[in-house]
Amino acid sequence: MAEELVIQGSALGKQFGENVIAVEDANFTIPRGSFISLVGPSGCGKSTLLRLISGLIEKSGGDLLVRNAEVVGPRSDIGMMFQKAVLLDWRTSIENVLLPDEIRGTIDTDAKKRAWDHLQLVGLKDFEFSFPRQLSGGMQQRVALARLLQTGADIMLLDEPFGALDEFTRERLNDELLRIVEGPDITTIFVTHNIQEAIYLADQVFVMTPRPGRIAAQIEIDLPTPRNIDMTTTPEFNNYVQQVRDVLAGHLDGQPL
């Protein structure tokens, strides 16, 4: 099976100022259509790695290729989602979803139709003309997800997107996310500090450890797809959890917290 590599990092590093090494010597390849979780404690550089790939920040060393081209800045095939929904309060859901088209100057009936459909897809039928403050936290993240889909990006970088939501909402949104990104086209990188969530969602988990931020292990998750919540109680699943814990424990021993 000739898998197409979309993202490739070798000896990738990012240093802030004189002595803060946020990411050091990161080597990885991410095949097209895969779902990668970046898991690790705060300060392990997972958000930095995500921002390097997004082109929002510049690397300090090594190589980073997206579709065989060096990353030099934000690109239209990469879309992002954050822990906060970052919606514009003065815009209705549909107007928020149309923001990417507005910025690119591609707003037309077709774009409007797609925005409408994306809102239906994320389950926001009848909330197209609600303002963010009229929506719950979970619904706001759904709008943000619809906006991400609207960009047409097939590489999705998600920075703890449901981290601020309650457990129940998060589980539901995780399942809906999986449903939306499944298939060979969309490549997803998902940052989280929740080990179970990381394993549940991903084809591959990158375990990151802090000071300096490194990818300590890359674990293939060989669980059947589509995933469902009952799998989280199986021995296989718990094995993976234990593996991740072991990696983190090995690196965190003796480190100040």
């Binding site: 929002l56 954050f82 960009t151």
Partner: peptide, 9 residues
């Protein structure tokens, strides 16, 4: 985050 969102777009 809003700055990053706009930049990424």
């Amino acid at each position: 985050d809003a700055t990053e969102l706009f930049r990424s777009l």
